[in-house]
Simulated assay, not measured.
Amino acid sequence: MAGCTTQETADATQLTQAERRLTEREVFLMASDILAVSGLANTLKVEETMDVFNAAAYLQDGERWIGFNPLWVLQFKDLPTGERWPLYAVVAHEIGHHLLGHTVVPGGSRPATELEADTYAGFVLHALGADLAQATALWQGFSRKGSDTHPPRALRLSAVEQGWHGSAGRAGLALPGDTGAPQADAASIRQRPGAPVGDLQGAHEVPAETRSPDLDRPDLSARAICAPLPKGGPRGRLCASSASDAQQVARLTDDNRRNAWTEQDPGPGIGTRLVFDFTTRTSPRRLTVVNGDNSDEKSFQRHARLETLTLRGSNGHTRSVVVRDNRREQTWTLAGFEGVNWIEVTVDSVIAGRRYEVLAVSRLRID
């Protein structure tokens, strides 16, 4: 195995089904975010294993794998953005081993290859929106002296910092977190060549020569209900494939997080679509979600809640998002959706409510 970031092995402990919700799928989507920074599709295989302390990269049956310790990953469940960067750091480090060819060379971990993977991880962490302190947090707890297979801490920190500085100007994605979580600086948001830098809170037009060809606008059928987007962000409308009226659709984008939109079709809401239809070509910066019926804890638990979403832009860019099952505001910065006419949000999976099958969402904004 290449790249087990520390040299320990965890003891096996039984995980509940609810705890496993955090693991394989979320780590796979995390790897997709990391590879997107390099313009690569995610073809990695992901599995839980108690044979490593946190994670490792290896080849198996001719395929590239990331093995991770589910107990180590579990500590990051529901933490705010600034405390989850070490998890992204570990996954980025292991992906670096694959991309740099370390896993095809026999012999396992070596100081030189560990430093190369650290540099790649630093590059990725900046591109995902981490500041330098957040990017180096994982390595601060490593051995000061190192070992035969892993270099000393000072060299590893230097490698991460080198990669972080090498990624300047390429930031795009950020982990979901609380309202007060640090955001990427507006000047560092990844854009197409020649695109002007806009306010992080708003949106800007993209020059015609840099725009991608548009896909056909999604067909929501005659039953779709639309509401204008609120002032202060992109101009346009939000259309829902399932809603009782326009006022309810507007609840998704207003400032009152205690009023929820609920889907009206039979079933738990899987396949429900929401389309942000912009008046002019727009480069939105951020997705914001408040999950469930947030009027109180009892209502939150009774209704179905979001689990995973897929975003698709008119320029063909797509991204999957895992939504945490809590009542806090969660945010993701959006890279790759520059110069779009619309963004379609599809509900891929939900968490069942204790009493009602109806899906509820208190906020879902793109601005």
Rank of each mutant, 00 (worst) to 15 (best):
F53Y: 13
W72C: 07
Y88E: 15
F76N: 04
G96L: 09
N42P: 01
A55T: 05
W72Q: 14
L79E: 05
H98M: 00
Q75L: 05
T113G: 02
D78P: 03
F123I: 00
I34C: 09
L40A: 08
T43S: 09
E24P: 00
L71E: 11
F28D: 14
Q75D: 06
I34F: 05
G101V: 01
D33Q: 11
A57R: 07
I34E: 06
G101C: 03
R25W: 12
D78K: 04
E26A: 04
E94H: 05
P80F: 08
G96S: 09
A57H: 10
E116S: 09
A18Y: 15
V124K: 12
L35T: 05
E116K: 01
V104H: 11
F28L: 13
D61G: 13
V124P: 02
H126T: 02
G107F: 02
T119G: 02
V105W: 07
T13P: 03
L125K: 01
G82C: 04
A117V: 02
L87S: 10
A112P: 06
R20F: 13
T49S: 15
W85Y: 06
G101A: 01
A12G: 09
V37Y: 04
S38C: 01
E47H: 12
F28N: 11
E19T: 07
A41R: 11
R21H: 11
D51N: 13
T13R: 14
L100A: 12
G101S: 11
I66H: 03
A41Q: 14
E47F: 08
L87F: 09
T16L: 12
H98Q: 04
L35G: 00
Q75Y: 03
T113V: 11
A12I: 08
D51A: 14
I95L: 03
T49W: 11
K45N: 01
S32N: 01
T103A: 08
A56N: 03
E47G: 08
V91I: 15
